[in-house]
Simulated scan of single mutants.
Amino acid sequence: MSLEDTVPRNIKMKLIHKHNVNISEVEECFSNREYGFLEDTREQHKTNPPTQWFIAETDYGRKLKVIFIEFDGHIELKTAYEPNQIELDIYEKHA
């Protein structure tokens, strides 16, 4: 099952209108990921199970930060957007 089938409409609309990201780009990032996931440990973002994130490129080389929660192998996408330099540095250092 693809993310296209599982991501709620309101999240898809936020991705498109706020971040100019479509679901196929997010799926490409999952496929193209070269490093591990990092856990978001900031208090205001703590969830159970934990919120995780990674940075990867789309098939066209666009870097995206993808934020999600995994429930029993099912991905709940929270958001995706182009990362800033601080996020890129953190991911490069810790992933």
Rank of each mutant, 00 (worst) to 15 (best):
I75A: 04
Y35Q: 13
H94E: 13
N32V: 12
R33E: 03
N22R: 08
N32M: 11
E92L: 01
E76K: 13
V7G: 10
G73P: 02
T41K: 00
I11Y: 13
D72E: 14
R62W: 04
I75R: 02
E70I: 12
K18G: 01
L3H: 11
H17W: 11
R42L: 00
N84C: 07
I11C: 14
Q85L: 03
Y81A: 03
R9L: 04
N22Y: 11
P50M: 05
V66D: 02
E87S: 09
R33T: 01
L88I: 09
E87H: 06
K63T: 09
T58C: 12
L77H: 03
H19A: 12
P83F: 02
R42W: 02
A56P: 02
G73W: 07
I16N: 10
I90A: 02
H19D: 09
E87A: 07
A80I: 03
T51I: 01
G61N: 10
R42P: 00
F71P: 00
E27V: 03
I23H: 06
L38F: 13
G73E: 06
T47E: 03
T79E: 08
H19K: 08
K65R: 14
A95S: 11
E70P: 05
S2Y: 12
V26G: 10
N48G: 03
W53A: 10
V66C: 11
S24C: 06
E57R: 12
E27Q: 14
T51R: 04
G36S: 10
I11V: 15
E4G: 12
H94K: 13
H17P: 02
E39F: 00
D40E: 02
T41E: 00
D5I: 08
A56S: 15
I55F: 04
H45V: 04
I69T: 01
F37M: 07
E4F: 15
I55M: 01
H94V: 01
Y81H: 12
A56M: 08
V7P: 09
I23S: 06
E28K: 13
D72V: 05
W53H: 11
G36R: 09
V26Y: 09
P8F: 08
H19L: 08
N32H: 14
F54M: 11
N20Y: 08
N22M: 06
S24G: 07
T6M: 11
R62M: 08
D59C: 12
V7C: 13
Y60G: 10
K46C: 00
P49I: 04
H74M: 10
I11D: 13
Y81S: 06
E87C: 05
N22T: 13
W53M: 12
T6V: 15
K63F: 12
